[in-house]
């Protein structure tokens, strides 16, 4: 849903603001480098609308298999939100991982995962099965 910025005619993207439960319907108009938001009822909506259309980011979470651990999967996430268009690249890197216990919460599993500038980290301690 990312906007194409090189269009000559302005592009209008409609989205729901998720900054609070009100859920304003935003209209974001992209005209070259000019981005404007209507439909928002507070400044957070404007910031969200602009970010969501120009450079949306998401935190990716998943699990990877662990050998010899007390459970079979280790939960993982990107340490910071990454560009939305890189989600599937990150998942590909996640799918290639296989760990051996012990795993430590916060441990960097892949640094700069899929070139996003963010690390992939473990989100749970997995002690080795004794």
């Amino acid at each position: 849903m990312a906007a194409k910025k090189n269009n000559s005619t302005p592009e209008i993207v409609e989205l729901t603001c998720i900054q609070c439960p009100i859920g304003c319907q935003l209209k974001v108009t992209v005209d070259g480098s000019d981005v404007s938001v209507t439909g928002n009822t507070c400044p957070r909506g404007e910031i969200y609308g602009k970010q969501e259309v120009t450079s949306p980011v998401r935190t990716v979470t998943s699990t990877v298999p662990v050998d010899n651990g007390i459970i079979a999967r280790a939960p993982v996430r990107t340490a910071a939100p990454i560009p939305k268009q890189s989600i599937m690249d990150v998942m590909e890197a996640v799918h290639s991982l296989k760990l051996t216990a012990p795993v430590t919460l916060g441990e960097v599993l892949i640094s700069n995962v899929a070139g996003t500038g963010s690390d992939l980290i473990a989100t749970r301690d997995i002690p080795a099965a004794s």
Partner: peptide, 10 residues
């Protein structure tokens, strides 16, 4: 901060 479930539990 935004934690995952296991991090919050930890």
């Amino acid at each position: 901060e935004e934690l995952t479930g296991p991090e919050y539990a930890a």
